[in-house]
Nucleic acid binder design. Structure first.
Length: 402
RNA sequence: UGGGGCAUCGUCCAGCGGCAGGACUCGGGUUUUUGGUGCCCGCUACCUAGGUUCGAAUCCUAGUGCCCCAG
């Protein structure tokens, strides 16, 4: 029986090629474009936002060209609550949010996936650069998998262990890095659990964007073949998120003191939300050496600056943890690992190397201890753990540990 | 107001007779479906007035300001 797939169409190149590839493979396809922001009339957003009129037209045009149905879905309310509110609240708490993570979790693989399954679709597809396979297949192709030495080795053992513990039960799904290492998006997809992975297709995972995807788009005559990659926060097209938050709150952010690590006042800041841990630019404080934001105290409304050394941390506590790998097995593995911790690779931010670490299951949440100290661990950001290039799960950084 | 020291980019320092150099800040760019990091490019300065010299930020004199020690 032909599988029915709902494709999340942003109007960009990636999702367009996604639709084309699935059509080629014989899926029964339909395209959907989510309307996410609260512009006054449908699609009057500035260029660069998620659902400008031009983007909607691009998505519709591609579907028309492919001969598949297209629809726009109004998800503004979910987006506002699940993504924007969290974004604002996190900043106000002195932390640094990653709205794309929430958007994937609650929109693309949340509301959209729910909608799809409610409407007779078997799966949702997106243009993300990540690969979903069965664990069996992942283990089979393991030898040629690239990796960063040690953690890749660790990964093989872990994955084999998971397979062993799972026995011959229902298939286990793995989420791996995209083949295009420059575009890999596995980090922002860690909220895809087994259930969601079973109903998700990422046909671009094995392709290289500039080499393959754009070529296919050109060959198919897609208008958006040369369209720029999206970047920045889609609901803040001009990138001035501090101003966005001020607008949304209806008042200016209070000024506060900029301190050094001893507590001495170095200057003033125009709102603590303008800063993030590890930030160097825009501090307005001159010294013999560059200074970085090492702490943000929302309650005291202060920003503390220090040296690169002050940014080093050996571990972190994460909350809001989600397993991409089978949860029961992962928890069993953690229990068995005990005080030694579970050896994994950990990524504390997007576009950052995976670093060897040990994972512990503490009372309050997950704790990670890095083999070598990490720089600039920012609360609010996602930490994603890997076995080799396979995503095991992730959470939200609650606190860095010295 | 006795003695000593210092006055150079917005900030901190280098240059001590031959076209003023760096770091930090700031601005721009690049990278990036978060923020940040990184990388590239750029910006602005010799306290004032005389003098010595072919030539002075650099030497001399005076002035002004600041600092330290003696009070």
């Amino acid at each position: 029986m032909t599988k029915r797939v709902l494709i999340a169409m942003s109007g960009g190149v990636d999702s367009s090629v996604t639709a084309y590839l699935l059509k080629q493979r014989g899926y029964e396809c339909a395209g959907a474009t989510m309307r996410l922001t609260c512009s006054r009339s449908f699609g009057d957003d500035a260029p660069g936002s998620c659902c400008s009129l031009a983007d909607l037209e691009d998505a519709e045009a591609v579907c028309e060209r492919l001969g598949i149905p297209w629809q726009a879905l109004d998800f503004r309310e979910v987006f506002s609550h699940a993504v924007i509110d969290t974004f604002v609240r996190t900043y106000e708490a002195g932390q640094t949010p990653n709205p794309c993570i929430d958007c994937n979790r609650y929109l693309k693989f949340g509301a959209l996936l729910d909608y799809a399954r409610d409407h007779g679709f078997d799966a949702v597809a997106t243009g993300h650069y990540g690969r979903i396979r069965t664990l069996e297949k992942t283990l089979a192709i393991r030898p040629e998998a690239s990796g960063d030495g040690q953690s890749a080795e660790v990964g093989v053992n872990l994955l084999a262990d998971i397979a062993k513990r799972a026995g011959a039960a229902s298939p286990i799904w793995t989420l791996s890095c995209g083949a295009d290492t420059a575009k890999d998006q596995s980090y922002v997809l860690y909220a895809l659990d087994q259930e969601r992975l079973a109903h998700t297709l990422l046909p671009l995972g094995g392709l290289i964007k500039e080499r393959d995807v754009r070529r296919i788009a050109r060959e198919q005559g897609f208008e958006n073949a040369a369209k720029r990659d999206s970047q920045g926060i889609c609901f803040v097209p001009d990138g001035d998120f501090a101003n966005y938050i001020e607008q949304r709150r209806g008042r200016a952010l209070p000024e506060g003191d900029v301190l050094d690590t001893s507590g001495a006042v170095l200057g003033r800041h125009r709102g603590a939300i303008r800063y993030t841990i590890g930030q160097r630019k825009g501090l307005g404080v001159a010294s013999a050496h560059p200074l970085y934001v090492t702490a943000i105290d929302a309650a005291a409304n202060t920003v503390t600056l220090g040296t690169p050394e002050d940014l080093l941390a050996h571990g972190l506590v994460a909350d809001d943890w989600l397993w991409s790998a089978p949860a029961a097995i992962m928890e069993e593995l953690l229990d068995d690992a005990g005080a030694a911790g579970l050896a994994v690779g950990a990524k504390i931010r997007y576009h950052h190397p995976t670093r060897p670490a040990r994972l512990f299951w503490d009372a309050g949440g997950m704790r990670l201890a890095f083999d070598e100290p990490e720089r600039g661990i920012a609360p609010g950001q996602a930490v994603v753990i890997y076995a080799g290039d396979v995503v095991l799960g992730g959470g939200r950084v609650a606190q860095a540990l010295a």
